[in-house]
Design a protein around this nucleic acid. Structure first.
Lengths: 342, 342
DNA sequence: CTGAAAGCGCTTACAG
DNA sequence: CTGAAAGCGCTTACAG
């Protein structure tokens, strides 16, 4: 069996209480005792049993996270790895681990969260996505359990870290307008995600402020998948009056659009200019390189971890909503070369 | 406070022991009692405290995993998300969660694993990478703690799930040979990773079996980064006698090569044919599309989870080393078009 | 089929 | 500065 606090106590000639106090750096233990106990712990290879400690202290030093479902797979492949790295790195720095669980349906996910929360398995939950009327959020609020959302949830007063997606999308659209475009389309993601809604709003705002036409047929909804881009592309290119530029919800979707355009013999940016979001590594490498808005994925994760841990430790957050800044990277896919569309 | 087994017992008019037995589906409990207790658990919103349960049963139903360090970042971004999804999905199906921790140095990583193992925080460990003389593996073997390696570790008798990377690389090289190439180079990864060594070996074997020349200057080592590809490319293209085709350790590295070639005005596959590994989503989308060997990343994770859980549950594995099959996807980057190199 | 009791490895008032 | 004792929420022989 593993070495316990008792074994150490016996060998050191002190009580288990004392060993426990040494472990938690209790102030009223003599230097000499501390030194001796630590030496013996080292010698015996003692490691405190986390389950036991957590049972009595009611703290787990663990953050919980639910893996998004496969539907969002491609989007997540890019987003997710960076995000997780941010979350886990910051958690580790603060002595926290990250527990992942997966659900195959919305119901599964809720059950998984319930198990983690009610089973006192984690001290807080990080949500990677925000849907409309998310039952998980409803549950966590009801339980008053610490959690943080990457994204936001209506105007609700919950702790979250987010981009200003309205502004980001406004910026993306303005960039196209500044390149001389007047017919600009929008390729959106699943309409129940707040990120889709916000970016659509920013796009609309930019068009409105510039007195540009806003046709409903220039807005297409889809998934975070290449196929969605491909489909949107063929829809747009068959319109009698087609847009000359698109704002696209995600780089992956843009890759689908690009592929379709290449197959049909269209050129980017000459026939269609493109701006998208997320600035994944490969945005820069595609041909042409993609103009994309970097949303600071790593930082989103990092901040989420940080703020949640503070909340767990009882700090009152100054702001409920933390904004991670975005930045537009202009590349060839949106540069005003010789245009075919004039 | 949360509802405990005692609360349920009191309300149901039975002893805590009985409630516990209902919880674990003990066979000798009457239907009637079971029904009643379950009803009350439901009614009170009871969820068993995982820490307490795990303290006494000495089982955590958790698999541990150490996040690879940032050095391998880009490689991992692609690999990792798929892999984790495989691991977590299969773990969840079996009632296990996955605990992640991060280390910033080899020393950190070892400490993290020690903490998980000695602190009885997890029932088994999944290692995502195999280095030469990995101290973590040495530690786990010494502790006789259940673990599984994605990859392999020399010829050691440890549980692992792996590709046949020698054969895969042999296949990749043979494909180039079948396209008429005689001067074939190899862009490798970090030399201390077994995956680098195996793929190099497969490449050499194919050249040897076909009596092709094997110049040491046609082999370049690097990281799983675009920059490595870029550098390898400029090295190769400045050789007096340069290869006409390359086998490349990873798609990301190939993207770097592609970018460099494009900048210099070279064409793929005409000036240089390319085959690489991993077949990430974007391999298909690059221009030209990349020929790549799919190594079944999701399946690697899935199998690892499955086999580790079996091991934890005491099943003797039939085979220590499980091979996930690979498959070559031939695309334009290696097709024999009009060649410039003849 | 069910209960009382001991115990998993730790923490923490209470007392000295 | 340190120890004895109670207790965190559960499981599991032992006894009936």
């Amino acid at each position: 069996m593993a070495v316990t606090i008792k074994d150490v106590a016996k060998k050191a000639g002190v009580s288990p209480s004392t060993v426990s106090r040494v472990l938690s750096n209790h102030p009223r233990i003599s230097r000499e005792t501390t030194r001796k106990v630590k030496e013996i712990m080292e010698e015996m290879g003692y490691h405190s049993n986390i389950m036991a400690r957590s049972l009595v202290s009611n703290k787990t030093y663990t953050l919980g996270m639910v893996l998004p479902r496969p539907a969002e797979e491609l989007f997540q492949n890019q987003f997710f790895a960076e995000n997780i790295r941010g979350i886990t790195t910051q958690a580790s720095r603060n002595g926290f681990d990250v527990l992942m669980t997966a659900g195959h349906s919305e119901q599964d996910e809720l059950e998984a969260v319930t198990r983690l929360v009610k089973g006192r398995r984690v001290d807080g939950i990080i949500l990677l996505q925000s849907r409309k009327n998310d039952p998980i959020i409803v549950f966590l609020k009801k339980e008053e359990f610490p959690f943080i959302l990457i994204g936001h949830y209506g105007d609700d007063d919950i702790l979250c870290v987010d981009n200003d997606n309205i502004q980001a999308s406004f910026d993306a659209t303005m960039h196209l307008i500044s390149q001389g475009h007047e017919r600009i389309g929008f390729v959106s993601g699943p309409p129940n995600l707040t990120v889709s809604q916000d970016r659509l709003e920013g796009y609309r705002k930019a068009l409105a402020e510039n007195g540009l036409r806003m046709l409903s047929e220039w807005i297409v909804e889809g998934e975070f998948l290449q196929e969605s881009g491909y489909r949107a592309m063929s829809f747009f290119m068959n319109l009698p009056e087609r847009p000359t530029a698109l704002v696209v919800i995600d780089d992956i979707v843009t890759f689908g659009i690009l592929r379709g355009l290449t197959e049909l013999g269209f050129k980017v940016p000459q026939d269609l200019s493109l701006v998208s979001f997320n600035n994944i590594t490969l945005a820069e490498l595609s041909s042409p390189p993609l103009t994309s808005i970097d949303i600071g994925i790593y930082q989103l994760g990092y901040m989420a971890s940080q703020l949640l841990i503070r909340q767990i430790q009882g700090d009152k957050p100054q702001l409920l909503r933390t904004i991670v800044p975005h930045r537009l990277f202009v590349r060839e896919s949106s540069l005003n070369l010789k245009r075919n569309w004039s």
